Amino acid sequence: MKKIICLFATITFFLSCDQTQKKESQDEPTKVDYIYKATYLDDFKIGDSNLVLKVQEMHQHIIEKNYEMVGEYLADNVVFGLEDGSLIEGKEACMKFMIEGYSSIEIEDYQVAVNLAVTGNNGDEWVLLWDNGKIVTQDGAEMAYNWMEAFQFENGKIITMNQYAKPRK
């Protein structure tokens, strides 16, 4: 009987040591040697969720065509990088682009697939947004899109917006 108790205690001890070791190794971040070195950043942590809310509020104002409120989210030196590779620089030019582009359409069935705030190891704050919706033109034509946007923030304002769009079926 003593042998069975001793054997049971020994097995329990070794199993508990193994579990502790596994838990410790799961908690430690793994250093990865990437094949391609990032030219900007390759280390991020989860950022400020309030910035996600700002992006969502701005989108709500765009859909409602409340452009004065949309402008409150943009820094004076904001830059939009559009899906065709063109850049729009400055708050006034970006606002003109949005007002001209969105005033004659309706955005329907707007949905967010992913929104994530991240902070780079250099302190840069970004919100990554994957969203989709249906564009309805004044003549009733409808086109559905998937969008991917990245918004960079500085002092609570958007300083960069990069956008990619793809029609969906």
Rank of each mutant, 00 (worst) to 15 (best):
E24M: 07
A38F: 10
G123H: 03
M148I: 15
L53A: 11
Q152M: 11
L41A: 14
T137Y: 11
Q111G: 06
S103Q: 10
K3Q: 06
Y34P: 11
M1L: 07
F13T: 09
K31Y: 01
C17Q: 09
Q60P: 03
F97S: 14
I99E: 02
T119D: 01
D76W: 00
I4N: 08
V112K: 08
Y110V: 13
A141M: 07
K157H: 11
N77L: 02
T10L: 12
N66L: 12
N77H: 04
K37Y: 01
K166S: 12
D48E: 08
N66T: 11
Y73M: 00
V136A: 09
E92M: 10
L53H: 07
S49Y: 05
R168E: 14
K96E: 11
S25A: 08
K169E: 13
T10W: 04
L128D: 06
T10Q: 03
P167A: 13
D84A: 10
D124V: 09
Y110E: 12
W126S: 00
L74C: 00
G47W: 00
G90N: 07
F151I: 02
T160M: 07
Q60G: 05
L74Y: 00
G81H: 05
E64V: 10
L51C: 06
V79P: 02
E92D: 14
P167C: 06
Y34C: 11
A9P: 01
K91Q: 02
D76I: 00
K54V: 04
Y102W: 14
V118K: 11
C17P: 03
M95V: 09
K22T: 13
W130I: 15
I105V: 15
M161T: 01
D42R: 11
S16E: 02
Y34E: 11
E57A: 07
E149C: 13
